[in-house]
């Protein structure tokens, strides 16, 4: 079990590269949710990507170089590092030690990894965040990324935060356990299989009758929303941080 630091005064924020390139508002919303709990948020400007694309594609040397750049960027103090993505958090918390298993930097990397927390788990367990819903009634569904579910095991935390929102009805997917077909470079290396997977995911989302789906991972969101948009499907996708922030501001 992960041990969560209690009410830390300062945290670092790793925004993720997808948030940097495509979804900056989602990244920013995560920072606001942390600040709302009275925490000082530091954003190291030398941060970039967790390295997972290369790690999963057969280029471990490149992944290691990028991973070390993150370890260096966050070396100013031992403050916890909060990540608004189960997948990037899983990479940094679980896979970095494997990636550096036989490297001289192992212990430094391991200490870094132990400071990694997924945003919703951190809000729930370290900060005991509570929310008052100011938005209109809405029915939505939740999509869990595979690594949020199976590596960071933060899905229940994300849902617990959503359930605090009184006007939100959460309808669960029939196949919540199943991958949406993103898988990073998998989506472009095996596009035919990835397409079949995202189509099934969208059908599952549609079957819930929800007007929107919420997720904690920008990769899945880009994949699922991208497919919906191409089919002119009116269901919208939102990152959980951005969604909660919007609801509590009304």
């Amino acid at each position: 079990m992960t041990e969560f630091p209690q009410n830390p005064s300062t945290v670092y924020y790793f925004g993720t590269c997808l948030s940097d390139m495509i979804y900056p508002e989602a990244g920013m919303a995560g920072i606001r949710l942390l600040q709302r709990e009275g925490v000082e948020v530091i954003y190291p400007s030398r941060q970039s990507c967790c390295g997972q694309p290369a790690y999963n594609s057969g280029f471990p040397d490149e992944a290691r170089a990028v991973a070390l750049a993150q370890v260096d960027a966050f070396s100013g103090s031992n403050a916890p590092i909060v990540v608004p993505s189960g997948s990037c958090a899983g990479m940094m918390r679980i896979h970095y030690p494997l990636l550096f298993e036989h490297e001289p930097d192992y212990f430094r990397v391991k200490r870094f990894s132990e400071r990694i927390f997924e945003l919703t788990s951190f809000l729930r367990h370290s900060l005991n965040a509570t929310y008052t819903d100011k938005g209109p009634p809405v029915t939505l569904t939740w999509h869990s990324s595979c690594h949020a579910r199976r590596e960071m095991v933060c899905t229940e935390d994300s849902k617990a935060l959503l359930r605090q929102l009184a006007n939100v009805t959460l309808v669960e997917l029939e196949n919540e356990h199943e991958c949406c077909g993103f898988g990073g470079t998998f989506s472009v290396k095996r596009p035919e299989i990835s397409a079949a997977m995202v189509k099934d995911k969208v059908r599952d989302i549609q079957n819930t009758g929800a007007s929107a789906f919420i997720t904690g991972d920008c990769g899945c969101m880009m994949n699922i929303s991208g497919h919906m948009e191409s089919r002119k499907n009116p269901i919208s996708g939102h990152h959980i941080a951005e969604f909660i922030l919007e609801r509590i501001h009304g």
């Binding site: 940097d20 390139m21 990244g27 920013m28 530091i42 954003y43 190291p44 189509k199 994949n223 948009e229």
Partner: peptide, 23 residues
Amino acid sequence: VRTKPVFAKESLKQLTRQEGIRH
């Protein structure tokens, strides 16, 4: 089977700087 990703005009790095988040 998907639309092209739309890249943000301002990155999170820029946005955080503008919003006064400590870098």
